[in-house]
């Protein structure tokens, strides 16, 4: 289980104790709960059930794509 979608943080709100992020998921902009310690506008995150559970590393993403290209030869 665990459907997660990537989105870009476009705003941060800190309501004493509970941090929420405004995340752009494709054409959708939605406020989600932050389960992240440090997060900045411009970061990419994985949203699961209305919670940002993880950041996405751009470098690692590129590395994986590179790997795919390498193995497949495409």
């Amino acid at each position: 289980m665990c459907l997660g979608v990537p989105g870009e943080v476009v705003g941060i709100e800190d309501n004493n104790e509970l941090k929420t992020l405004r995340v752009k998921i494709g054409g959708v902009i939605r406020d989600v709960i932050s389960a992240l310690d440090k997060v900045e506008v411009g970061d990419y995150v994985i949203v699961h059930a209305g919670v940002a559970i993880s950041k996405i590393s751009r470098e690692e993403a590129e590395e994986t794509l590179r790997l795919l290209a390498e193995i497949s030869g495409v």
Binding site: C2, I33, I53
Partner: peptide
């Protein structure tokens, strides 16, 4: 849910 979903209630 599993551990992924637990923050949804744990954080609030």
């Amino acid at each position: 849910g599993f551990e992924t979903t637990m923050p949804a209630t744990a954080i609030p």
